[in-house]
């Protein structure tokens, strides 16, 4: 009986490991910008990301992946669910909808719903306890903590509006200018960045 239990357990663990590995690989392979960009409408975001330290523009060249910030990390089921849901929704918009109608600049107002604090804290976890950041940063991060769990809860992206995508609004403007008088200039900028980031899968306009 004991032996049987042991065997079953081992098999279980084995299956578990394989399952984990497959999940891990599957998730991993589908987590970087090169995969996401296949379906998601995100050329300006990719460009702004590549210009940012989070996209490898720092001295070390280290970078975070899309999913590191844009998927919840507190719970694996939530993670997988959100990922799958986003995939389906955005994939269908990509295939059947009109992505050019999306007002990305307006969407930034809801950034707290698509940037997840636990993703940020994965790397910046010590921010909330460290003494090395500026006094001002310490003050505001303390404020963040004091609001956590209340109805006034704020998020990393509430203040760090551009984190992960350097000067995001500029890049979005290259694609959809907010000001008529800047149209021509923005178009030029767009072709400049399309040229520069072609190797990241950024589409060059005909």
């Amino acid at each position: 009986m004991k032996l049987k239990l042991f065997i079953f357990l081992s098999i279980g663990i084995g299956i578990g490991l394989i399952f984990s590995l497959v999940t891990y690989y599957g998730l991993h392979k589908t987590s970087d910008q090169k995969f996401c960009v296949i379906c998601h409408e995100m050329d300006p975001m990719v460009v702004a990301y590549r210009e940012d330290v989070h996209g490898g523009a720092g001295k070390l060249g280290a970078s975070a992946k899309c999913v590191d910030c844009h998927l919840p990390h507190d719970n694996i089921l939530k993670y997988i669910y959100t990922k799958a849901r986003n995939g389906v929704v955005e994939g269908s918009i990509h295939l059947f909808g009109d992505p050019s109608k999306i007002d990305w600049i307006e969407k930034r107002a809801h950034r707290e719903s698509f940037v997840f604090d636990d993703g940020c804290l994965e790397c910046h976890g010590n921010l909330l306890s460290t003494q090395t950041s500026s006094k001002q940063a310490q003050k505001m991060h303390k404020h963040y903590q004091s609001l956590k769990g209340t109805d006034k809860e704020i998020h990393c992206a509430s203040c760090h509006i551009d984190a992960g995508h350097q000067n995001m609004r500029n890049t979005l403007n290259y694609y959809t200018p907010e000001f008529e008088i800047m149209k021509e200039q923005m178009k030029e900028k767009k072709s400049e960045i399309q040229e520069k980031y072609q190797h990241y899968g950024i589409q060059k306009e005909k």
Binding site: L9, I11, G12, I13, I15, G16, F19, S20, I76
Partner: peptide, 11 residues
């Protein structure tokens, strides 16, 4: 049980 365990590994 095995499945639960596997999930634990990931979690």
């Amino acid at each position: 049980v095995a499945l639960c365990l596997s999930l634990c590994f990931t979690l």
